[in-house]
C-alpha cells in the first residue's frame, strides 16, 4: 500500500514506533482485533499502547494534512468519515478497558503489583494512575458514607474481597487464526470426562475463556 498522505507528498512512516513494519491498514486491523478481544474477554487484557499511540499519530497527521487542503474538497469529507470511524473504534476500545478497570480495580492493581520485573504491564501509565485514583476515591467515599459510622472493629474493608474477581470460567465465542492442536476441554460435570479438541484455522468455537486465555494474548485466536 502506498503512503496514506502521498496526497501532499509527506511521509509519516519513518517515525513509526512499532518494531515490525506495518502498513496503516494493518495497524487499523490490529486495533480492531484488540477492540473485539477486549470487548469479549472477561478479564482485562494486556494494554496495546503502541497500537493506540500509532493510531493517534496517524489521526493527528491526517488532521494536520486536512487543514492544509482547501475547503470544499470532496476528499476531505471522505477522510473525515474514515477518521470518525477509526476514532469510534479507538474510544470504544479505551472505554471498555476503563470499564473493566472500574469493575475489577483491586484485582487489576494487585496483578500489577505482583508483576515480575521486566514483564509487560497490563496497564498503560494513564490507566494505572486512573486505577489508583479510583481505588483511593472508592475507599474515601466508603469511609465517609458508611464505615466511620460502624463499630470500630468493623471499620475496615478488604477491597480484594469486596469486589468480584473477573470470572475466567465464562464462555466466549472465538475464531481461530492459527491452528492449535490438542486443546484440553474440561468436563462440565463429574460424570463426563475431559477430552481434547483441535482448533482448525478459520473455525469458530464456543468454550471457556480459561482454556484459551493464553491463545488470546498470543493472537492465535480472536474473540468474536
Amino acid at each position: 500500500m502506498s503512503d496514506v498522505l502521498s496526497d501532499d507528498g509527506s511521509d509519516i512512516h519513518q517515525d513509526d514506533s512499532l518494531e515490525e513494519v506495518m502498513t496503516p491498514a494493518e495497524l487499523i486491523a490490529k486495533l480492531e482485533e484488540a477492540w473485539l478481544n477486549e470487548k469479549f474477554s472477561p478479564e482485562l487484557l494486556e494494554n496495546k499502547s503502541e497500537v493506540v499511540e500509532c493510531v493517534m499519530e496517524q489521526l493527528t497527521h491526517m488532521e494536520a494534512n486536512l487543514q492544509r487542503v482547501k475547503k470544499g474538497d470532496v476528499k476531505v469529507s471522505v477522510h473525515r468519515m474514515e477518521m470518525d470511524r477509526i476514532r469510534f473504534v479507538l474510544s470504544s476500545y479505551l472505554r471498555s478497558r476503563l470499564q473493566k478497570i472500574e469493575k475489577f480495580f483491586p484485582h487489576v492493581l494487585e496483578k500489577e503489583k505482583s508483576r515480575a520485573e521486566g514483564d509487560p504491564s497490563l496497564l498503560s501509565p494513564e490507566e494505572y494512575a486512573f486505577a489508583k485514583e479510583y481505588l483511593a476515591n472508592t475507599e474515601t467515599y466508603l469511609k465517609a458514607v458508611a464505615l466511620k459510622h460502624m463499630p470500630p472493629n468493623l471499620q475496615s474493608v478488604d477491597m480484594l474481597k469486596a469486589v468480584p474477581e473477573p470470572c475466567l470460567d465464562s464462555f466466549v465465542f472465538l475464531r481461530v487464526k492459527e491452528r492449535q492442536d490438542n486443546i484440553l476441554v474440561e468436563p462440565e460435570t463429574d460424570e463426563q470426562r475431559e477430552y481434547v479438541v483441535d482448533l482448525e484455522e478459520g473455525s469458530q468455537h464456543l468454550m471457556r475463556y480459561r482454556t484459551i486465555a493464553p491463545l488470546v494474548s498470543s493472537g492465535a485466536v480472536q474473540l468474536i
Binding site: M1, S2, D3, V4, L5, S6, D7, P24, A25, I28, Q58, L59, M62, V74, K75, V78, H79, E82, M83, I86
Partner: peptide, 12 residues
Amino acid sequence: FSLDKIYLIGGD
C-alpha cells in the same frame, strides 16, 4: 463524478 485516488488510512 470523477475524482483522483483517495489515500485513506485503511487503504487506497
